[in-house]
Simulated scan of single mutants.
Amino acid sequence: MKRRDFTGRLAAWAGGSAVAPWLAGVATTGVAGLAQAQSFQAGKDYVQLRQPQAEPGAGVEVVEFFWYGCPHCFRFEPLLQAWVKKLPQGVRFRRVPVAFRDEFVVHQRIYYALESMGLVEQMHQRVFNAIHNDHKPLNEANAIADFMAANNVDRAKFLEAYNSFGVQTKARQAKQLAQAFEIEGVPALGIGGRYLTSGSHAGSLERSLQVADYLIAQSRGK
């Protein structure tokens, strides 16, 4: 979803309306092999950052930029999860929630609160499902806390994390990183602190993972 589309999505998100249908029929089989079998072009299938970003730790880092309210991010998630499980040794993965508007910061705080509680694996997909399948916007702290409690997450502890200085700091850092990668739409993948690809760049979300495999190989060989 492009930055310009987020204004239109705001009304639907706030009202909890159904999301638009998305492309179907994606598959994960043979992604790495396909990436090795073809060449990808800078400026078309991916972009190279004008200002490379320092990577924390050794190896190659892959960053997924996403927004819980984005229907493409929702549909991308199962494909992404399968791909992440096959990442080679020495490649790290992390998610960075993006807020193109101030109203979307609540979703950043949901993610980082869950992360601080060690509950991303348990709750990440459930948050997506609540918004896109159950049409719950989850755009207000009490409603979010009620949802967490209904999913066996301690309500008080979640609100403490959600309102914490640490979570607010991570949300600000996420904004800075998204700006550094010049994120204009989500989902998008940053690779090795130097490259960015997405469904818009690659032509489809499935193909963006093939490009990411190629860029990982490029980064490991630098």
Rank of each mutant, 00 (worst) to 15 (best):
S17C: 07
W83T: 08
Q122H: 05
N133L: 09
Q173E: 15
Q173F: 10
G15V: 08
G8M: 08
K222E: 14
G90T: 01
K157R: 14
R92T: 05
Q176D: 11
V19Y: 11
Q218N: 03
P71R: 13
A12G: 14
G118W: 05
P78Y: 11
M117F: 02
V167Y: 02
A180W: 14
D213N: 09
W83D: 08
P21Y: 13
S17W: 15
Q173C: 04
V186S: 07
G33C: 01
F104I: 01
A35R: 07
G43V: 04
V47I: 15
E55C: 01
W67N: 09
Q53R: 14
D213Q: 08
Q38K: 13
A27N: 14
L119N: 03
P187E: 10
L79I: 10
H107D: 05
R101L: 10
K157N: 09
G190M: 08
G118T: 10
L114G: 02
L189N: 06
V211D: 13
Q210G: 07
P88E: 03
A171C: 04
S164T: 04
P52T: 15
A217D: 09
K157E: 06
G15F: 12
H72I: 13
R207E: 14
N142A: 11
W67H: 07
F65E: 10
V153Q: 05
A14K: 15
E61F: 00
S164D: 03
K86I: 00
A212T: 12
S204N: 12
T7K: 12
P78M: 10
G90L: 00
